[in-house]
């Protein structure tokens, strides 16, 4: 499903250059869940952003199914994100002026793939039934992240990418959220790549890869 080949990325400033990724190779099969670990500044988030087409690489390839992400235009990358990817961030990134129901349906509606039955199942599994009319500011951190997970999965993506999805949550809530995510990923059959600092959470997924000094260790 995901094939990253010899991917490199360097950040340049007036003073110096920092090579964050130095030839990263990574493969994830459909239905597989992988944890990406590594110390701060190792390039985990950068790798995730390059896979999602949110940033440009200096070299290498990123294949999602049969599409090479790095050669695409902004509009084509947007289409790819809309149709095939689900993204979950540490900062929840919900739209503050939309209700929980509208936030959940946001990406599915953008992709013209709104499936009421699948959304109803997500609402039930995520325990959001009582909160559909509330706004993000009226929810706790854990509840907000559940909404973000629901939004990412509502489109039935081929690949779910999560950047420290439990970074803002306490341990118990984090476990709860991750179990839920893993179950839903298994139910939808998509590939799952999660960036995390926590070895404990990484161990809950099928496979762990460690990023060190810009390379997969």
């Amino acid at each position: 499903m995901l094939n990253v080949v010899n991917l490199s990325k360097t950040y340049r400033s007036a003073q110096d250059e920092v090579s964050v990724l130095r030839g990263v190779d990574l493969r994830i099969a459909a239905g597989e869940s992988v944890a990406l670990t590594g110390e701060s500044g190792s390039g985990k988030s950068t790798l995730l952003h390059l896979i999602a087409g949110l940033d440009d690489a200096d070299g290498g390839e990123v294949w999602i199914a049969t599409t090479q992400v790095l050669g695409l235009s902004d509009a084509a990358r947007a289409t790819l994100r809309r149709q095939q990817l689900g993204l979950i961030f540490q900062q929840f990134n919900l739209v503050p002026s939309l209700s929980v129901a509208d936030n959940l349906a946001l990406q599915a509606r953008l992709a013209d793939r709104h499936d009421p039955a699948w959304q109803a199942e997500l609402v039930e599994r995520l325990g959001l039934g009582e909160m559909m009319k509330r706004y993000p500011e009226q929810l706790s951190g854990g509840q907000q992240q559940r909404v973000a997970i629901g939004r990412a999965l509502a489109v039935k993506p081929a690949l779910l990418l999560a950047d420290e999805p439990t970074g803002n949550l306490d341990e118990a809530t984090a476990d709860d959220v991750l179990h839920l995510t893993r179950d839903l990923v298994a139910r939808s059959g998509c590939a799952f790549l999660m960036v995390t600092h926590s070895a404990r959470l990484a161990a809950m997924l099928d496979r762990q890869v460690h990023l060190h000094a810009g390379r997969i260790a």
Partner: peptide, 16 residues
């Protein structure tokens, strides 16, 4: 800006 960022992450193109 947060909303715009979220929309772009969810697949809305800059042009649209």
């Amino acid at each position: 800006l947060p909303t715009i960022r979220t929309l772009r992450a969810c697949g809305a193109s800059l042009r649209m």
